[in-house]
Simulated scan of single mutants.
Amino acid sequence: MIKPRWLVLPAPDAHDMNRIQDILDKGQLHSVCESAQCPNIGECFAHKTCTFMILGDICTRNCAFCAVAHGHPLSPDPQEPGMVGETARQLGLKHVVVTSVTRDDLPDGGAEHFVATIQAIKHENPDATVEVLIPDFGGRREPLESVLSAMPDVLNHNIETVPRLYDSVRPGARYERSLQLIRNVSNSRSDERILTKSGLMLGLGETQEEVVATMEDLLQVGCRIVTLGQYLCPSSRHHPVVEYVHPDTFNRLADIGKQLGFKQVVAGPLVRSSYHAAESFKELRM
């Protein structure tokens, strides 16, 4: 399937790419921008921004949509949280986004590593806000509570797709489990200060009616920010692109989401969970 014109981007600037990569390499850090083959990497690196990916670059799950490698990961690096905080300071980030691979091999799913990273970022960057994109922690409440105790400004957990497609797209995950995680965040005492966020990929074979129904589910469990973007197939081994969704459809779904009651809907073919996250957060705080 040939990509439509709205998905064709200029090649990233090699200087920008090398500059950010050198900084990440010095801290022995990973970015989801590279590991997940994000189409916006050139733009983000040019603006000296990236999304840090902690707990290594090997995931214990094997989702059909994801370009991140899967297998048996190494033990968490105890120096990594501090290096994330220091690197965020070097980059001058005002809004720091941190995600991770899924670590089903760890008793707490990596929650304490998230806590240490949030604390390190705040120590090195007192004026910065922090957004975390977390895995489902196997549905366990205690790891989530640990992360919430560190008081990130935004807690994101992507629902990714509609429930009908979970078995083929996210075989290691459960739709209701992800909804429950967001519900637990909303029911926590920290909810007034922590914004809840989630996102979907479109073009996997879902219908617009299913997308709207999923947005309604997210809103019902307390999600306040939702992102909608086009799924792009990383390789022939991954789930195929069923449809390249037209920008007009994204605009229509954004309007529906706002009418439903979301505080913010960020939708478009190139939108990703952390795309323009700093600008989005600033808009909500204005």
Results as ranks from 00 to 15, higher is better:
Thr99Cys: 11
Val211Trp: 05
Glu160Arg: 12
Pro12Gly: 06
Val211Asp: 08
Ile159Thr: 02
Glu216Thr: 10
Arg174Trp: 08
Gln259Arg: 14
His30Thr: 15
Gln220Glu: 14
Pro171Cys: 11
Thr87Gly: 04
Ile159Leu: 15
Gln37Leu: 14
Val212Asp: 07
Ala69Asn: 15
Met17Glu: 11
Phe114Asp: 00
Asn62Gln: 14
Arg174Asn: 12
Ser186Glu: 09
Gln79Lys: 14
Met286Ala: 14
Asp153Gln: 09
Ser146Thr: 08
Pro135Phe: 06
Asn40Phe: 10
Glu86Leu: 14
Asn158Gln: 12
Ala11Lys: 15
Cys66Asp: 04
Val242Pro: 00
Arg140Val: 00
Phe45Asp: 01
Lys263His: 14
Arg61Met: 08
Glu279Cys: 01
His238Gln: 07
Glu43Ala: 13
Asp57Met: 09
Ala69Glu: 15
Glu216Cys: 06
Phe52Glu: 11
Glu206Asn: 01
His70Val: 00
Arg224Phe: 04
Met201Tyr: 03
Leu74Cys: 09
Asp105Leu: 04
Met83Ile: 00
Thr87His: 05
Asp104Glu: 10
Met151Ala: 13
Gly229His: 03
Asn158Tyr: 05
Glu131Ile: 04
Asp127Phe: 08
Gly229Cys: 06
Val245Thr: 13
Val162Cys: 04
Leu253Val: 09
Cys63Thr: 03
Thr49Val: 12
Pro12Met: 04
Phe262Cys: 09
Ala277Tyr: 00
Thr196Asn: 09
Glu80His: 07
Ser149Glu: 10
Asp255Arg: 14
Phe65Leu: 06
Thr60Tyr: 09
Leu228Tyr: 02
Ile58Met: 11
Val130Ile: 14
Glu34Tyr: 11
Asp127Met: 10
Val147His: 03
Asn187Glu: 15
Gly205Gln: 08
Leu218Ala: 02
Lys94Tyr: 07
Val211Pro: 02
Val132His: 06
Leu144Asp: 09
Arg5Ile: 11
Glu216Trp: 01
Glu80Ser: 02
Val32Asp: 13
Phe52Ser: 04
Ala278Leu: 06
Leu181Met: 12
Thr196Val: 06
Glu243Arg: 11
Pro143Ala: 08
Asp57Phe: 10
Pro126Trp: 02
Ala128Val: 07
Ser236Ile: 03
Val96Gln: 07
Leu7Phe: 04
Ala111Trp: 00
Leu204Val: 03
Gly42Gln: 03
Gly109Asn: 05
Ile41Asp: 00
Tyr231Met: 05
Asp167Trp: 01
Leu195Asn: 03
Asp108Met: 03
Val32Lys: 01
Ile225Tyr: 02
Glu131Asn: 05
Asp13Val: 13
Gln90Ala: 12
Leu155Gln: 07
Asp13Trp: 09
Arg177Glu: 13
Thr249Ser: 09
Gly110Trp: 01
Ile58Pro: 04
Gly172His: 14
Cys66Met: 08
His95Asn: 11
Ile58Phe: 06
Arg193Asn: 12
Phe45Glu: 00
